[in-house]
Write a protein that binds this DNA or RNA. Structure first.
Lengths: 149, 149
DNA sequence: ACAATATATTCCGTATGCGTAATATATGCA
DNA sequence: TGCATATATTACGCATACGGAATATATTGT
């Protein structure tokens, strides 16, 4: 019988690494005095920095979140002064999400923090190993999507 | 400027893969009619299947969770009839966590589900690639622990 | 024996994401 | 035109994990 060790199970390794990254982002952002940007905002911010004024659904698609997850996230981002909802003049069902000035201004410092944190986290990992590992993750995600979508 | 794509960022790839595994476990367990075992219980169950009657702290150490995270988790596991707390006769500060009969009985079916789900998730990944990827995750975790602990 | 310190748990608030159901609005087809 | 269907968003409850503060109990050094 192979002895099962929770701490060496793929599920643990993955979820722990995710939590480590989340925590590192939180700390990095806090250290840089960017306390109103939470780790979960990153995907949405990056998407909006590329194209402002997206509808919730499209934003969720680009950031990889379900519509129902977007609601709370956008609530927090509005609360924290980074984005706001605005009625879509072309479709009364939908809202368009825009960055505030602050949301636009934090781009540079936030991306600096992201770079620094990533460097720190992957400090011991060779670029090649990292690249291969990420490829595996993409494979897993594609596999899951193929089965679901 | 490299165009930043949220869906290809390491942070997204990791957290998405983690969510995929959690969801797959939930579905697999549900399909097997094991609805009272939640994905988060796995680490704790595995630890207790190896050694029953551990204190919260030690259990958290083996499952990779903070003591404060254990409280709610154990509350849910008690609610779901899998484990229970019992005063430690040797140290009135601590409680010992034991499996119920049910907690012991689900071992085989749960591990079967885990095997099946893992096989499905890693279906497209070569064992060697998987092994390397997991090694990278261990490196990241070790790196983080070295910096924190 | 006692004060100072350490350990074990819990409590509480926060963040994050999901699924299901409800609501509002659009669209398409008879 | 008018109903059936599709789409966009939100509401709600649940699961999961953290960190910091509070509480209870041990242990230790003097």
């Amino acid at each position: 019988m192979t002895d099962i060790v929770p701490l060496d199970h793929p599920y643990y390794l993955l979820s722990r690494t995710t939590l480590i990254m989340t925590s590192a982002f939180r700390k990095g952002l806090t250290s840089a005095n960017i306390t109103h940007v939470k780790p979960a905002y990153l995907g949405v911010l990056i998407a909006l920095w590329q194209e402002d004024g997206l509808k919730v659904i499209e934003l969720g698609r680009r950031a990889g979140l379900e519509p129902s997850s977007m609601t709370g996230l956008l609530d927090r981002m509005e609360r924290d002064g980074l984005a706001f909802r605005s009625a879509d003049p072309n479709d009364r069902r939908s809202q368009l999400i825009y960055l505030t000035d602050e949301g636009r201004n934090v781009k540079k410092p936030v991306l600096d923090v992201v770079d620094e944190v990533m460097g720190e986290i992957f400090r011991d990992v060779s670029p090649d190993d990292l690249c291969r590992a990420l490829k595996v993750l993409r494979q897993i995600i594609d596999n899951a999507n193929g089965r679901t979508n």
